Amino acid sequence: MATGVLRSFGAGASVARGALAWIRRDPKSAVLERTNFHGRTVTLAGGPALALGATAGAALGAPNARTAAAAVTAGLVSGAVGFYDDVVGNRPEQKAAKGFAGHLGALREGRVTSGLIKIAGVGAAGLVASSLIGGKKVDVLLGAGVIAGMANFVNLLDLRPGRAIKAGLVIGTPLGAAGVVGAGAALLPDDLGEEIMLGDAGANAMGALLGVALTARTGTAGRLVALAALAALTAASEKVSYTKVIQDTPWLRRLDELGRRPA
């Protein structure tokens, strides 16, 4: 068991670091540069690097072939549609649509936004992944909600350096998601140092894979509780700022700022 965990952790870490180096060497990687909230130039290369590393580690550490296939589906599809939104969503005509309501409004006007493609892609990946894990129809539907909901939740946290990865490590460790934890740990210093950012590609992939790990370890009751919690957290994000809550809570603020590059 310990050897398998270490192998999964190591695969996640090594693939993530290798993918990051490979992407950053590409002459076209300049299109991934963005300006963060401090006005510093960072690269979105961390997103696909984390998606590839976490998916490889999760698949290697899966208990069976169906769960491995679920991890590959959730991680790669969520990462791919997230990356598409990271790149295409930066265009002026795409930025106008904000939130789920904004994307639906654009659809009614005959425009398919990159954000809507991401939402549909993550939802479809969650449903397929949950089906691969198996169970009764209600369990599959609940699992799909957990996977998509976790992808969205981690993405909501990706507003400050290192925040989403730290959350992924806290959630992933008790779930035994060694591949996800390995990939996150390998990229955390670069994220905290404001050299990279996860974007939707990394945050969605990490969240979806955590959702797969949770779904694979729970039955109807566990998935129902998890989905209810995720729904409540998502609804709360529409009313309150997670960043403000963290700033106003001393122990959360200290954890959030731990290791971060000074402003």
Rank of each mutant, 00 (worst) to 15 (best):
E33D: 14
E33Y: 10
R34M: 14
T35Y: 11
T35M: 13
N36D: 15
N36H: 08
F37G: 02
H38G: 00
H38Y: 11
G39Y: 05
G39K: 11
R40F: 01
T41I: 15
V42G: 00
T43P: 00
G47L: 11
P48H: 07
P48G: 08
L50W: 08
T55H: 10
A56V: 15
G57N: 05
G57V: 03
G57M: 04
A58M: 15
A58T: 10
L60R: 09
G61Q: 11
G61I: 04
P63L: 12
P63W: 11
N64T: 04
A65N: 06
R66V: 03
R66H: 12
T67N: 11
A68K: 06
A68H: 03
A70Y: 01
A70W: 00
A71H: 12
A71Q: 09
V72S: 04
T73A: 11
A74L: 12
A80P: 01
V81Q: 13
G82S: 13
G82N: 13
F83I: 05
Y84D: 01
Y84A: 15
Y84C: 04
Y84R: 13
D86R: 14
D86N: 12
V87E: 03
V87Q: 02
V87R: 14
V88Y: 08
V88N: 02
G89V: 11
R91N: 09
P92I: 13
E93F: 11
E93S: 14
Q94K: 11
K95Y: 03
K95R: 15
K95P: 00
A96V: 15
A96Q: 15
A96M: 12
G99I: 12
G99F: 07
L104H: 02
L104I: 11
A106F: 05
A106V: 07
L107K: 09
R108W: 13
G110T: 07
R111Q: 08
R111Y: 10
R111F: 09
V112Q: 05
G115C: 12
G115R: 09
L116E: 05
K118N: 11
A120P: 03
G121F: 09
V122P: 04
G123C: 13
A125Q: 10
A125R: 10
G126A: 12
G126N: 06
L127V: 13
V128Y: 04
A129Y: 05
A129D: 07
S130V: 13
S131V: 05
S131C: 07
L132Y: 03
G134H: 06
G135E: 00
G135P: 02
K136R: 15
K137V: 14
V140Y: 04
L141M: 15
G143M: 12
A144T: 08
V146L: 12
I147V: 14
A148G: 10
G149C: 10
G149L: 07
M150W: 06
A151W: 03
N152M: 10
V154A: 06
N155G: 02
L156P: 03
L157D: 01
L157Y: 04
D158H: 09
D158V: 09
L159A: 14
R160W: 00
P161Y: 05
P161L: 04
P161E: 05
G162M: 06
G162C: 06
G162K: 01
R163C: 02
A164E: 00
A164I: 04
A164S: 08
G168D: 01
L169Y: 05
V170H: 09
I171M: 14
I171K: 02
G172D: 02
